[in-house]
Design a protein around this nucleic acid. Structure first.
Length: 879
RNA sequence: GGACGAAUAGCUCAGUUGGUUAGAGCGGCUGCUUUACACGCAGCGGGUCGGGGGUUCGAAUCCCUCUUCGUCCACCA
């Protein structure tokens, strides 16, 4: 009899891919219409890998956000793209070569880069596929890549501009060196980890043989680069000794004992060795004291030409062992004390970072940071949750210059050309052919490439066409929001604000939503090495993309990391299943004549109730979405659909279904209306299933993607019906509980008389819905009477304003009932006492707001009434 | 050494500006093939809101302090 039949079992595989293609084919993800746009640029995934759960979360939340605002009618654009991820990608390719026993140098720069492009294509294909699988409503026509032509021009433009503004400089400094990747890295790319090492105490003899200076170091092998030993100027232990020469053991050089206030007198012996080329402090101390810099390392971290022959080529640990041995032999080694200290590791390669002296390009960050701080001060940007402002501010205030050159091949080659003849330096947008000074043709471009983040920080505007003044840039910049994990604030978010302010004069986005981090059930970070990661595609395959997205939305509380395992996604899949089945039920009950036109629909109390609930839900969703409170959104729609719509409304309409074809048609028509609106409400959070069902709805529009989002309508609020329905629910729940507690089987019809209090406000409503109450409680003959008029042999269920007498003399267990009553009495009288105490407190009555006091009075009255009835009944049972 | 976060039911967590008899999901228990859904329905049990002080008429919520975890930042050799 039904016109429409959904498959019996909810199987997302059957339609998710099909629907994504449908959306794409009809260009539903490109911005439409007029008004204030809503724009998000995707945090570009690295082309190195595949998407992990962090991306699953992040893109689910972005998709929810974007779909919501798109349905709200704003021209909405979500820009897709990927990041070339300099070091990471180059490493992937180098490892592949390594398996063939080759290095990138065997190929040469050009071939290596070409090969890397191929690898990029492979990963890019996987990543795009994954994003489509999870349903991301990205505008693929605007996809970008940080190394594509347009973005490369943006990068050059920025480099040249910064150079011209004297915000970029080149210099020989101590930088963080990744000996594995053999490149400089920025401070932010160094991760400090605690390492258990030793503090080696050693002695340096004075050159004149007049004794020793004892000092301590964690890295004895760096002795070979020592150029002095420093003590504090006011350290009395060394009075008269400063200026004397020490004989540096093993290296056989003489170095001075100097005084410098940076030395901590309290630490150890108060003497510290100075190794300017291998320690940031020493570097500064060396400059202050005009000391030489001796670089003892090769780029790969082994010891280099400036050390004694027998040390050359040794790795750090090897050299350390040898050094300790030699010092021991010389009688200069004192002891090695176990010592925990922080050691920098390269974020990408994991190698121990070496402070390394080299010539690099830097960005002067202070002026940029000032503008970025200004953006926050002026409220151009807002953090969600707000507390991340601290992280941002703290970083900005302690900003250091940014080392942007990388000794890699994969990336934007630095747009600097040096004349081979006159040495003139050209910093240009376009590759120059001749030297502008001496017309020489021998121009050589700087070999290095730029840090990956040097292109990422331009992302919000470079993806829209900057530096060209494209229509997209004019229309969609600045963007609305950036959604990303909080561990990327420094690398990306803060720098994007800097770049936006510097190059466009505007913050690149208004809202910064920091997503939680997804962790495993034990709260550990998901990682390859622990094997505790969850592949978002596994989730999609097993539970569906909607389960993935809804679960993420439901669990994303502000600033709270999410701990979960695969099982956790059942939350979403169960909800989707519920939606499926409820919809299937409604659709299969649409009569052949179809649903009624709007004009013929007549609404009753229950319809008004569900509309009020729907209205309240819409309001909650709007409020929560505006504040990026995803978990609130998830709970609001879940509770509405499951508890209100399915458990009460659909159940209630079963009464109508049994009351003849006409009334059934009325009921189904109204159900379809509520379902239709619910699907629109749910679509941003469960996009596929809602669209699949929506497409089956009579009179549906083209697609949910572009359907209008439900709007809260004050005319649909009905406070009266809301409170009346609550009374009905109270009545029903009371009787259900009683049935359950006395284990009365559902099929057993019970006799119930509801005794209404004379002045009870909801008497009329309850009487009008007698049939509903009967249906919900399984008491066919449910009737109404006066309160207190309890039939013999009945058990009482006490409500607020009524009591239900259930005739179950033959069924019930009298002692059990007495027990239950006593318990309730105890609870109620405790409550009465606490409220009485509160109300007898003069201070409370005097200072609390009137409505609070009134509320307490009402509560007390109700509780007292209940208590009286309960007590009376207990007496009766006993007597 | 700084900064921030967390501690609430057996588990994972909500609880927005202080005002309910503190909630959800999962798990547990009881009963149900009840016109879609057992990925279900109905019901039940379970918490001195980490400890201790304080402010307030009133604190899970604000302040102080302690304990335990976690994260970020920081050049103590």
């Amino acid at each position: 009899m039904s016109q429409i039949e959904l498959p019996k079992v909810y199987n997302p595989q059957d339609f998710e891919d099909r629907l994504y293609k449908f959306w794409l084919k009809n260009d539903l993800f490109s911005p439409k219409g007029e008004g204030e746009p809503f724009v998000v640029a995707i945090p570009p995934p690295n082309v190195t890998g595949v998407l992990h759960m962090g991306h699953g979360l992040n893109n689910s939340l972005q998709d929810a956000l974007v779909r919501y605002w798109r349905m709200k009618g704003r021209p909405t654009l979500w820009v897709p793209g990927t990041d070339h991820a300099g070091i990471a990608t180059q490493q992937v390719v180098e490892r592949r070569l390594q398996k063939e026993g080759k290095t990138r140098h065997d190929l040469g720069r050009e071939k290596f880069v070409a090969l890397t492009w191929k690898v990029k294509e492979e990963h890019h294909a996987i990543i795009s596929q994954q994003l489509k699988k999870i349903g991301a409503s990205l505008d693929w026509s605007r996809e970008r890549f940080t190394l594509d032509e347009g973005l490369s021009r943006a990068v050059r433009q920025v480099f040249v501009t910064l150079y011209e503004r004297d915000l970029i400089y080149k210099g020989r400094y101590l930088v963080n060196w990744d000996p594995e990747a053999q490149t400089a890295i920025s401070d932010d790319e160094v991760e400090h980890k605690e390492v258990a090492g030793f503090l080696y105490h050693i002695k340096y003899p004075f050159a004149d043989g007049s004794g020793f200076v004892q000092l301590a170091t964690t890295r004895p092998e760096t002795l070979l680069g020592d150029v002095a030993v420093a003590v504090h100027p006011s350290d009395e232990r060394y009075t008269g000794l400063v200026g004397k020469m020490l004989k540096l053991p093993v290296a056989d050089r003489e170095i001075p004992l100097i005084a410098d206030p940076f030395v901590d007198k309290e630490f150890g012996t108060g003497a510290v060795k100075i190794t300017p080329a291998h320690d940031p402090n020493d570097f500064e101390a060396g400059r202050r004291n005009n000391l030489p810099q001796i670089n003892i390392l090769n780029p790969d971290g082994t010891l280099g030409p400036n050390v004694p022959e027998r040390y050359r080529g040794l790795t750090g640990p090897q050299a350390r062992k040898k050094m300790v041995q030699e010092l021991t032999d010389l009688g200069l080694f004192v002891e090695a004390v176990p010592h925990k200290h922080m050691v920098g590791h390269a974020q990408r390669s994991g190698a121990v970072v070496e402070p390394y002296l080299s010539e690099q390009w830097f960005v002067r960050m202070k002026p940029l940071a000032d503008k970025a701080m200004q953006a926050l001060r002026e409220d151009q940007i807002r953090f969600f949750p707000k507390r991340y402002e601290n992280t941002y501010t703290n970083w900005m205030e302690n900003i250091r210059d940014w080392c942007i050159s990388r000794q890699l091949w994969w990336g934007h080659q630095i747009p600097v050309w040096t004349c081979g003849d006159c040495g003139h330096v050209h910093v240009k947008m376009d590759t120059p052919n001749t030297c502008e000074k001496c017309s020489s043709k021998t121009l050589k471009q700087d070999e290095d490439v730029l840090d990956t983040w040097f292109s990422s920080w331009l992302w919000p505007f470079s993806t829209l066409g900057w530096p060209e003044l494209t229509p997209d840039l004019a229309k969609f910049y600045p963007t609305t929001a950036v959604v990303t994990a909080y561990d990327i604030i420094f690398f990306w978010v803060a720098r994007m604000v800097m770049a936006g302010m510097e190059f466009t004069g505007k913050a690149p986005f208004r809202d910064i939503y920091m997503t939680p981090l997804v962790r495993d059930k034990q709260g550990r970070k998901m990682s390859k090495s622990l094997g505790n990661g969850i592949d978002p595609l596994d989730i999609v395959n097993e539970f569906g993309a909607d389960a993935l997205k809804f679960t993420m939305v439901y669990l994303s509380a502000q600033g709270q990391d999410i701990n979960l395992d695969k099982e956790g996604f059942k939350l979403g899949s169960k909800f989707a299943n519920k939606i499926w089945n409820a919809s299937r039920y409604l659709l299969m009950n649409i009569p052949d004549e179809g649903v009624l036109p709007a004009g013929q629909i007549q609404k009753n109390d229950v319809d008004r109730w569900i509309e009020g609930r729907l209205n309240a839900t819409i309001r909650n969703v709007d409020e929560a979405m505006a504040n990026y409170r995803y978990n609130d959104v998830g709970h609001a729609v879940y509770d509405f659909f499951w508890n209100d719509f399915c458990d009460w409304y659909i159940e209630a309409t079963k009464l109508e279904f049994n009351a003849g074809a006409e009334r059934k048609r009325q009921a189904v028509s109204k159900l379809v209306l509520v379902l239709e609106e619910s699907l629109r409400l749910l679509h941003p959070f469960l996009s596929f299933i809602t669209e699949e069902i929506y497409q089956q709805l009579p009179g549906h529009a083209f697609s949910l993607v572009t359907a209008p989002y439900p709007v809260a309508d004050p005319a649909r609020d009905d406070a009266s019906v809301a409170s009346q329905f609550l009374a009905l629910q109270e009545l029903v729940r009371g009787i259900r509980t009683l049935r359950s507690e006395f284990t009365i089987p559902p099929e057993k019809d019970i006799e119930v008389v509801v005794g209404l209090d004379a002045g009870y406000a909801h008497s009329k409503f309850l009487k009008a819905h007698r049939d509903l109450a009967a249906l919900f409680t399984g008491a066919e003959g449910l009737s109404f009477g006066d309160q207190g008029n309890k039939p013999a042999g009945a058990v009482t269920v006490v409500g607020k304003g009524f009591e239900s007498y259930v005739l179950v003399r033959d069924i019930i267990d009298v002692p059990k009932e007495k027990e239950k009553l006593k318990k309730t009495i105890e609870k109620t009288s405790g409550y009465v006492l606490s409220v009485e105490k509160k109300l007898s407190n003069q201070a409370f009555v005097a200072s609390a707001p009137v409505e609070i006091v009134e509320g307490e009075r009402t509560k007390l009255l109700e509780a007292k009434e209940n208590l009286e009835r309960l007590t009376a009944y207990l007496e009766e049972l006993e007597g």
